[in-house]
Simulated assay, not measured.
Amino acid sequence: MTTTAALPQELEIGLVQIRVSNLERSLTFYQNVIGLKILRQQGREVEMTADGVHVLLVLREIEQAQILRRNSAAGLYHFAILLPDRPSLGLVLRNLIDSGIEIGQGDHLVSEALYLQDPDNNGIELYRDRPRDTWKYDAAGGVVMTTDPVDVDGLLAASEGLTWTGLPAGTVIGHVHFHVGDLAEAKKFYVDALGFAITTRYGDAALFISAGGYHHHMGLNIWAGQGAKAAPANAAGIDYFTLLLPASADVSEVAERVKQAGYRVEVEGGITTVKDPWNIGIRLLVKG
């Protein structure tokens, strides 16, 4: 499935910045349960990393933050941390079991995934991809995905004898997934203007999109309800995520396309940010 306005095939998701209500509590969670490390802190913002070099997650504490009910507003459904291999995901599972946290799970054919919530109900997925040459496609060229039970015993066996030391080098943000208020409007922004391609649909309730043939860099759903309003700015949730593009010319091209489509484009300190219809920020950056 294609789109006329295409993003570069080399596109990657960069870091995600989220709002939290209690920085110390969140740092304990993201270090001990998720396995990230503190890279640097400035005031009430902390950058977190897996490899000690690349920032994957930024936590920003806001005063008297609302903690929203799950699936109650347009905004973050989850951000997804991609592990480099199956033994690494098995170690994550072992650590999550030891932590006693509630874990969801799903085998999506293209990937195996674990799901949980942070203390502010920000959704998190931890997953590993199956090799691309094993993915299946439907008659229209869409990636075939489903939700089956994960082979938990197989994951644990894959990590047998290994020691948990946190998320390994090679861990990245694989995709982001949002509640939106209207799928048609989301398609206008993310596909027609921004330039993602549709990879698969879940009926009339969810849309998955990507660049370069990945199964999905983004998920968009109306599970918070048709017409769901944007999460309040003083609530826990997402500030922005970054798209890493090959060259500055790509940033200019994407920003101009979004602007011409009538959406907000802001440039501050040399950083270009576009806003989706539900006030989710997307920073357009050049790789490296």
Rank of each mutant, 00 (worst) to 15 (best):
A6L: 14
P8H: 11
E10L: 15
L15C: 11
V16T: 09
Q17S: 15
L23V: 07
E24I: 03
R25K: 08
R25C: 03
V33Y: 12
I34P: 06
Q41V: 06
E45T: 15
A50I: 05
D51M: 10
L59K: 13
R60T: 08
E61V: 05
I62W: 04
L68N: 04
N71A: 15
S72Q: 08
A73V: 13
A73L: 08
L82S: 07
P84A: 06
N95Y: 09
L96S: 15
S99L: 09
E102Y: 12
E102H: 15
G106H: 06
D107K: 11
L109F: 14
A113L: 06
Y115R: 06
Q117F: 12
N121F: 02
I124D: 00
E125L: 11
L126F: 07
Y127I: 12
R130T: 13
P131Q: 10
R132A: 14
K136Y: 02
Y137R: 13
D138C: 03
A140E: 14
G141N: 07
V144T: 03
T147R: 14
T147C: 04
L155S: 02
A157G: 10
A158R: 02
G161D: 09
T165Y: 13
V172T: 15
V172Q: 13
V172S: 11
F178L: 10
A186I: 15
A186R: 14
K188Q: 15
F189D: 01
V191T: 09
A193K: 10
G203M: 09
F208A: 07
G213L: 06
I222F: 06
W223G: 03
A228R: 10
K229L: 15
A236E: 07
A236G: 03
Y240Q: 07
L243W: 15
A247G: 00
A247N: 07
S248R: 15
S248T: 08
A249N: 13
D250Q: 10
V251H: 08
E266I: 08
E268W: 00
E268M: 03
T272H: 05
T273Q: 07
V274G: 00
V274E: 04
K275V: 00
D276E: 13
I280Y: 03
I282N: 02
